[in-house]
Nucleic acid binder design. Structure first.
Lengths: 201, 201
DNA sequence: ATTAAGTTAATAAACGTTTACTTAGTTAAC
DNA sequence: GTTAACTAAGTAAACGTTTATTAACTTAAT
């Protein structure tokens, strides 16, 4: 018999294992039995804690959402110029993804797999980023601190390059970018982005 | 009984249907029966043309690879300055993705699902892009046409922003970018990128 | 002794795949 | 030109597995 855990602990352990498996192979790619056997537990145990596989999947998603740090707020607490704030919040975000890459992977997987729930979740994750960029750029363009550039397009660019970096480093572990560490890479990218929108402090 | 097709036609029709389904829900998300019923055909038919579900999946991937246009070659045929060539080839690439978005979606899905085959396939797809950028930037930096920027990082940035744009427009059909048409969006992004690397003609 | 936590064993449904059979088309002999 | 023989394309049903899920029973902790 497996070690006896209290309900809350068992619940948490199920969520933990489910997260890495779902992140690895997606919803359909993981069998309930596989989760159970990884826990050293019979599949029936899962049904003491979650009504169904789908519900478990949903809770994993929720857990991820809850763990997410509000990097925007954090970065805004000590006000600074646009470039510094952007760099700071991107670094916080990146390190949180690096600490728990399953986050990003599951996000992308569930969106692609077309879970209705996931899409909203997915978009909201990045939305605060794009919103901040859009908002700041509109403000800066009034002060003529950035040239006439579509803020929405700039937001897309930023989101794309950050996601690509995190994807390449944290999920694919691509050898192409092995030599540069994530914070350096992010710093370079943010620098490039500021060039792109022709931002001058 | 379903309409009788010649072997080659049937084969093609299976591949066509399989492509959109696999692109939609991933390998595990699609049942053989579902493919068959979409074709209005019994599942056994699939096994007259493909030895297994996995083999079918593999052939879909191959088909996609074959259809891919060699946008790099195309763009290089009429030589021009870096910015123009880059824009031209990106537009060709984007329109090929727009014409057949399943391409990109399946690419991403199969990489995330961890198909061994897919990863190589996936990387090679974008590699020619990054390679071109890296190569050109090294050349340009010798002529001091771009500032001292890590070409590899720039390649990552470019790849990320292009992928994000294609993903948002062609797969998610995100309402956020509804107002801008894909070619315009791409043109803006390439412009931003040239700013980023401080490229002057 | 009760209750919470876990097990074993079973379920029905869905899965990929195979088998045995039928029908439509094509070809060659008469 | 018919018709008989053969091939190609498709079907229906069942295979054995795996899947998610449930029920009835057992064990440990308070």
């Amino acid at each position: 018999m497996a070690k006896r855990l209290k309900a809350a602990e068992r619940r948490a352990s199920i969520l933990a294992v489910a997260k890495v498996l779902f992140a690895d192979k997606g919803y359909h790619g993981v069998a309930v039995d596989e989760i159970a056997s990884r826990l050293g537990v019979s599949p029936a145990v899962l049904y003491h804690h979650f009504p169904s596989k789908e519900a478990l999947y949903g809770e994993v998603l929720d857990t991820l959402a809850a763990q997410r740090e509000s990097y925007v707020d954090a970065a805004l607490q000590s006000p600074d110029d646009f470039g510094s704030v952007l760099l700071r919040m991107t670094l916080v975000f990146a390190s949180s993804v690096a600490r728990d890459p399953d986050y990003l992977k599951m996000e992308m997987l569930s969106t692609l797999e077309g879970a209705q729930v996931a899409r909203q979740f997915f978009e909201s994750h990045w939305k605060s980023f794009s919103d901040y960029i859009e908002y700041s750029m509109r403000e800066l363009s009034q002060q003529n601190a950035v040239s006439q550039i579509n803020p929405r397009t700039a937001g897309l660019m930023f989101q794309g390059m950050v996601r690509e970096a995190l994807y390449a480093k944290c999920i694919l572990h691509s050898s192409r970018y092995q030599s540069t560490h994530l914070p350096d890479l992010i710093t370079q990218l943010v620098g490039l982005f500021l060039n792109a929108i022709q931002y001058k402090e």
